[in-house]
Design a binder for these strands. Structure first.
Length: 516
RNA sequence: GGGCGCGUAGCUCAAUUGGCAGAGCAAGUGACUCUUAAUCACUAGGUUGUAGGUUCGAUUCCUACCGCGCUCACCA
């Protein structure tokens, strides 16, 4: 005997109301609405709209019936507005016209999507309302909404069913809308500067362009193992080889690694390639991009991030990784000559894992001691060549490369470099970095001979930026958790007992291993 | 992956040392023509995440598992 969760009874009660509507000749799910006005527009322009006929539509969020009169609020994407119903004023149930009359308002539930035609007016208490003349059911809702006063508080439910959170807390709609406008403005900025946007493959025969553990997948039609992209830059460089000079993609990235407040397995980046320029061009481009987005999408230039006021107006600090590390730790890694010496200094800083090179020791020291201190937008350049196989070495000191990372509020917000376009050097560095036994371990990506072949043909001096969309969104929307700027964050799949009962998921009990 | 914490009705939360699992909202029935967390009366709603164990008795104590969070490690 299956257990029937109480939710099923609530749902069945609403299903009965849907059936009752059909018995009256009313479709609980008609095709379209005749809405003429949004809630906010009526509230903002009451003076000119008073006594005017309007048709509004939205989700019924509250319902207060008292005899021959009833009040409710509907919520649309602009806000909410009160509806006033009177028994004598409301058109009776009319199957031909699709109207729901006052005699049948018991078939309404909070959560239903309804449409009301009426005139704009004020109640005796002074609230701007629509005085209803006709009522249409647009969508019968079958499940109860979160509690109207406290909303949705359970973190897991918020993340799994974000739509419930945005219904209960409409200001969240604005947050995610801001993220959308942010991406729009970033596109506008790049289009205005002459960049062309390309689609690059998400399913790739090899993964490359970064160091990360990939997701593996299988393409049935080709009988081939493939990977989800960890980066798109090897394809952008092929576009430069093809003859384009300014390209970008807003790509999806998949990295099979840890999850925390600033890492999500699936994320997005604006990745550009600009020919005939080097990384200094990109320093200016990135600063301008962030300023443009801040002003155009958010209308301000300073943001509260992790308890700090971050100012995007002032010229950003530019400092080499060696200098930044020396300022904080007092250690000048550029003067060290042996790996043992570098590791000894690293141990002094409390980092005990021995690094294979001076350059990698510098990076560890930087990550451990310096990153968190970079609050205002800072461009840290001159990365060790050991961790930058795709970047061009600096002419004045080939231990370091023409590369910079963006740090804001202690968080890395983008990686940028002058592309290594010397095919022989690229191959040599790559070969040295890649160890076949580390395949798919995240140590380094495999050799991509097709890419090397394209580089053999020669690309102009080229440079690219890669600011992360989610981290930009976190900063500009002043959120501290990447899960709060991703509408559909990654969660383990679950199936509730209620849904098993409602949808008749068969075999759930049968699939349990039999006790024997 | 390690450590710590959390999981009670659709939602938000209670439950004294281990002693009858409760409330508000939502739901059902009825009353109510200016409410807005409407009000009033009545009704219903629970395998306390899952599975075991200890006990006369478990929401409570123990073990394992599932999910989520925090944190460390790894990474970007």
């Amino acid at each position: 005997m299956a257990i029937v969760p109480p939710l099923v009874a609530l749902r069945n009660a609403r299903l009965k109301k849907a059936e009752a509507l059909r018995e009256r000749g009313l479709n609980p799910y008609p095709s379209r609405s005749m809405r003429t006005e949004y809630a906010a527009n009526i509230l903002e322009n009451f003076e000119s709209m008073e006594n005017q006929p309007v048709t509004v539509a939205g989700r019924l969020m509250s319902w207060r019936k008292q005899g021959g009169m009833a009040f409710g609020h509907i919520q649309d994407r602009t806000g909410s507005i009160q509806l006033v119903f009177r028994r004598a004023m409301l058109h009776p149930t009319d199957a031909a016209a699709g109207f729901l009359g006052y005699e049948d308002v018991a078939l309404l539930d909070v959560g239903d999507v309804i449409e009301v035609r009426g005139t704009v007016g004020k109640t005796m208490k002074g609230e701007i309302s629509v005085m209803a003349e006709t009522l249409r059911m647009l969508t019968k809702s079958l499940r109860p909404l979160p509690e109207k006063w406290s909303g949705l508080k359970d973190r897991e439910t918020i993340l799994r069913k974000r739509y419930l959170d945005t219904i209960a807390a409409p200001e969240k709609l604005e947050l995610f809308a801001q993220v959308s406008r942010m991406i729009f403005e970033a596109r506008q900025f790049l289009y205005a500067r002459g960049f062309l946007e390309f689609q690059t493959p998400i399913i790739q025969p090899l993964y490359g362009g970064g160091t990360a553990k990939p997701f593996l997948t299988h393409v049935n039609a080709l009988g081939a193992e493939m990977y989800l992209a960890i980066s798109h830059e090897l394809y952008l460089k092929r576009l430069i080889a093809a003859g384009y000079e300014k390209v970008f993609t807003i790509g999806r990235y998949f990295r099979n690694e840890g999850i925390d407040r600033s890492h999500h397995p699936e994320f997005s980046m604006i990745e550009t390639m600009t020919a005939y320029q080097n990384y200094e061009y990109n320093m200016a481009l990135v600063e301008d991009l962030f300023r443009h987005v801040a002003v155009k999408a958010f209308g301000k230039i300073t943001f509260q991030v992790r308890g700090h006021m971050v100012d995007f107006e002032q010229p950003w600090k530019r400092i080499s990784m060696v200098d930044a590390t020396r300022e904080i730790t007092g250690i000048d890694f550029s003067e060290l000559r042996t790996v043992d010496e570098a590791n000894a200094r690293l141990t002094d800083l409390g980092v005990t894992e021995a690094q294979p090179s001076i350059g990698e020791a510098l990076v560890r020291a930087f990550e451990a001691k310096v990153e968190d201190t970079l609050i205002q937008p800072t461009l840290v350049y001159g990365h060790p060549i050991e961790i930058s196989p795709l970047a061009k070495p600096m002419a004045e000191d080939p231990r370091y490369v023409e590369r910079f990372e963006i740090f804001i509020a202690g968080m890395e917000c983008g990686d940028n470099w002058s592309e290594q376009n010397d095919p022989e050097q690229l191959f040599a560095t790559w070969k040295k970095a890649y160890k076949p036994e580390d395949r798919d371990s995240g140590e380094f990506h495999p050799l991509d001979y097709d890419f090397l072949e394209a580089m053999d043909h020669g690309i102009p001096p080229t440079t690219g930026i890669g600011p992360g969309i989610e981290r930009m969104a976190m900063i500009f929307t002043e959120q501290q958790d990447i899960y709060d700027v991703i509408f559909f964050p990654m969660m383990k799949p679950v199936l509730s007992q209620a849904n098993k009962a409602i949808y008749g998921v068969a075999g759930e009990a049968v699939e349990e291993p039999a006790e024997s």
